[in-house]
Lab assay of single mutants.
Amino acid sequence: AVSDRLIGRKSVVMEAISPQNSGLVKVDGETWRATSGTVLDVGEEVSVKAIEGVKLVVEKLE
């Protein structure tokens, strides 16, 4: 599936994300709604860990 190619990809937070609120990330020039178990600020680099419905699950790059 097209979405499977996103797992493991680097992306950049475009709208802040917290455990309570989804935000936005940009992956390969496309904007996606995303969630995370931690707070992520605009501009942080993250990695796509999973896809749940139409949202990406991301975490901060170490």
Rank of each mutant, 00 (worst) to 15 (best):
S47Y: 15
V57D: 02
S3Y: 10
V27G: 01
V12H: 06
E45W: 15
R33N: 11
K60H: 07
E59A: 10
A16K: 14
I7M: 06
Q20M: 12
P19Q: 05
L56A: 04
T35E: 09
V12I: 14
S11N: 03
M14S: 07
L40I: 12
V54S: 14
E59D: 09
K10H: 11
V54R: 13
S22Q: 09
G43P: 02
V46E: 01
T38N: 10
E15C: 10
V48T: 03
S47E: 14
R33F: 14
S18Y: 08
W32A: 09
A34W: 00
E30V: 09
Q20I: 10
D28L: 09
E15P: 00
L61P: 07
T35Y: 04
V46G: 04
S18D: 08
T35N: 06
V46Y: 00
K26W: 14
E45T: 13
K49G: 04
A50S: 10
A34H: 02
P19Y: 03
G37P: 09
R5G: 09
V12Q: 06
K49Y: 05
I17Q: 02
G8M: 00
K49E: 06
E52A: 10
D28H: 05
V58W: 00
A1L: 12
I17T: 04
L61I: 13
P19E: 05
G53K: 04
S18V: 06
M14C: 10
D41Q: 13
V39L: 10
L56F: 00
I7D: 03
V13A: 02
N21T: 11
S18L: 06
V54L: 14
G43N: 05
T35R: 03
G23D: 01
R5W: 08
S11L: 10
G23E: 03
E62P: 13
P19T: 05
Q20P: 15
K26M: 15
S22M: 12
S36H: 01
V13F: 00
R9F: 06
T31Q: 10
E45K: 08
A34N: 06
E15D: 06
A50M: 07
T31W: 13
V39E: 11
V2Q: 12
L40W: 05
K60P: 12
L6Q: 03
A16D: 04
E44F: 06
Q20T: 13
V46L: 01
L56C: 03
A1H: 12
M14I: 15
L6V: 06
V58S: 01
D41R: 11
L40V: 07
V27P: 01
V2F: 11
R33C: 14
A16T: 10
T35H: 05
V27F: 06
